[in-house]
Design a protein around this nucleic acid. Structure first.
Length: 282
DNA sequence: TCCTCTCCTTGCTT
DNA sequence: AAAGCAAGGAGAG
């Protein structure tokens, strides 16, 4: 079959965006293809000259194009954002090196679980744990010979419980995930709805979830809730801030204030460039 | 109230 | 082979 071609007039680096520590379930085939699960579909993507080639099932790629454009945040004018951040030498260098690195607009529930899993773990390990959850408790979807699984619902993970999650290798995060699933399944937390709430309110709600501290909350806000001024500080960003800016021992609220002052309303984009650049700088 | 320290799963690396 | 490290958070003191 010939893939559908989604026209894109924005810079886009699929590897940096999909496999750079925002999302964890994309797998890279050879020759530029990426396979993942999006909107209940197995999706296969490849960047071409003026856009992205798309295959998907069970819905065809035409039907999925809108969801894909949403996921890739093609509504962000990246060149304009770059211009706004270009005054900073370090961010500017990172932009020159990874000009197509974009933020994603992920599903809030999967994003929440992903970053609960991220604590004291590694990108590869997070992906393995999430993939085991999906394989064990998600629904099968096929694209030709490819099989992937949807991410399990809050109801499903709530019924799996801590013991079942530990069996999947989630470790000490198992009880947090189980509790989070319980909160969402019972209606105590409307994760999807938080995208429409203001930053402060959404952040406070996330901090009420077990396993969610300041860093994880910022990640979920940035990668799934349209809060582009969120500023998660992990080990790599901390190193970048210390080595490149001389910023040390600031508490999370002070760090974000510093970032907003320095980078402005797209501080979250600056954050992702710094993270990516510092992490891949040997 | 705020700060600091330790512990927590797993698995790869040195 | 023991220790360090990985997109941190909770609880104790």
């Amino acid at each position: 079959m010939t893939p559908y071609r989604l026209r894109v007039d924005q810079p886009i680096d699929l590897e940096a965006a999909l496999c750079g520590g925002q999302a964890f379930r994309w797998v890279q085939e050879g020759d530029g293809w990426f396979i993942g699960v999006l909107d209940n579909n197995v999706v296969r993507l490849r960047a071409v000259k003026d856009g992205v080639e798309v295959e998907s099932a069970p819905d065809g790629p035409e039907a999925l194009a809108l969801a894909l454009a949403d996921y890739l945040r093609l509504d962000d004018d990246l060149p304009a954002i770059h211009r706004g951040l270009s005054a900073d030498a370090q961010v500017s260098a990172a932009i020159r090196k990874y000009p197509g690195l974009r933020l994603l607009r992920q599903d809030p529930w999967e994003c929440l679980v992903s970053f609960i899993c991220s604590s004291n773990s590694s990108i590869r390990q997070i992906g393995r744990t999430l993939e085991r959850m999906a394989h064990a408790y998600g629904e099968s979807r096929r694209l030709g010979a490819l099989e992937r699984h949807t991410f399990p619902s809050p109801e499903r993970l709530a019924s799996v419980g801590e013991t079942g999650l530990r069996a999947l290798g989630a470790g000490f995060r198992a009880e947090y995930i189980a509790a989070a699933a319980q909160m969402v399944a019972s209606g105590g937390l409307d994760v999807a709805g938080l995208r429409l709430r203001p930053y402060n309110e959404a952040r406070a709600a996330l901090l009420g979830v077990p396993g969610v501290g300041p860093k994880v909350a910022e990640c979920v806000l940035l990668f799934s809730m349209d809060k582009l001024d969120a500023f998660p500080v992990d080990r790599w960003v901390r190193r970048a801030l210390e080595e490149w800016y001389g910023v040390r021992r600031l508490k999370p609220p002070e760090l974000r204030a510093w970032a907003l002052e320095r980078f402005g309303p797209y501080a979250g984009y600056a954050n992702q460039y710094l993270f990516h650049h510092r992490r891949l700088a040997v």
